[in-house]
């Protein structure tokens, strides 16, 4: 890596101020950023660590929603988000214990890796992403691979997940990275079912609206019979063709529905 300075603010306000410096970069758990720095693919002059900010950490259940601070690690979510079991299970299956001990939900959502798990949970739950300046609906937040609605210097302070009647996340792992080759998050709410797919599309996480419509009228795996996703626009790489990924979306959505609780 190149040399850089590190700042450790203790409040969101101080972090926002620090991020106003030239070439400043926020550092969450560092699970993507640190490897990027090691490869000299980024050269920030200042890293502003968010891990010392108490006000953006923790899990609470409030008015039918689970609210998770942006600086909360996957390990903490896995242990403490029991009010939303599918979400806790998803967090508990990200990476390995070392990753879960450092990586944060805010870091994951801000990066919006097209194969990450959390974007599927946020979009599939219709979550609300709150920052130091505003609240953004998940439907407006994800804007393509590694693209989000966040502005420069904006910090995710919390994410609010409405608790569904039933939900499940199915991840089919890419054999090397064990990121999602395809991951499908299904959540059933009183006003309908949401189905969010990660890992598959060149546009990043997306909602499978046909499946949502079918499942909203009949929440069973059979309701998905005959539905399929087009391979157009699906990622095609060493680990699977677009057609294979499109096929997996159908398989995993059925499994998620069958396993939803």
């Amino acid at each position: 890596m190149y040399s850089f300075d590190v700042e450790n603010p203790e409040t969101v306000a101080d972090a926002v101020a620090a991020l106003g410096q030239d070439e400043a970069q926020a550092l969450g758990g560092g699970q993507t950023l640190i490897p990027t720095l090691k490869q000299r693919l980024a050269a920030p002059s200042v890293l502003v660590s968010l891990s010392g900010i108490a006000e953006i950490k923790g899990v609470s259940a409030d008015g039918g929603a689970v609210v998770i601070g942006g600086g909360t690690t996957h390990g903490t979510v896995a242990n403490e988000a029991g009010a939303y079991g599918a979400l806790a299970a998803l967090a508990g299956n990200i990476g390995d214990p070392a990753v879960r001990n450092r990586g944060t939900i805010g870091g994951s959502l801000a990066n919006n890796d097209p194969s990450a798990c959390y974007p599927a949970a946020a979009l599939g739950s219709g979550a609300t992403i709150s920052t130091n300046t505003r609240s953004i609906a998940a439907d407006d937040y994800f804007q393509g691979m590694f693209e989000t609605a966040l502005d420069e210097g904006e910090i995710i302070t919390s994410v609010s997940f409405p608790i569904p009647e039933a939900a499940n996340y199915q991840k089919f792992e890419q054999p090397a990275s064990r990121f999602a080759l395809v991951g499908v998050f299904v959540a059933k709410y009183a006003d309908g079912v949401r189905v969010a797919v990660t890992g598959a599309s060149e546009e990043g996480v997306f909602r499978w609206s046909e499946a949502e419509a079918a499942l909203s009228s009949n929440f069973s795996a059979e309701a998905l019979n005959g539905l399929s996703v087009s391979a157009d626009g699906m990622i095609s790489d060493l680990h699977g063709s677009g057609a294979y990924r499109a096929h997996l979306i159908g398989v995993l959505t059925k499994r998620a529905v069958a396993a939803a609780s």
């Binding site: 089919f172 054999p175 080759l181 680990h239 699977g240 063709s241 294979y244 096929h247």
Partner: peptide
């Protein structure tokens, strides 16, 4: 080889 999931499915 490798007999990966995608190769088996294909």
């Amino acid at each position: 080889m490798p007999v990966s999931p995608s190769r088996v499915w294909e």
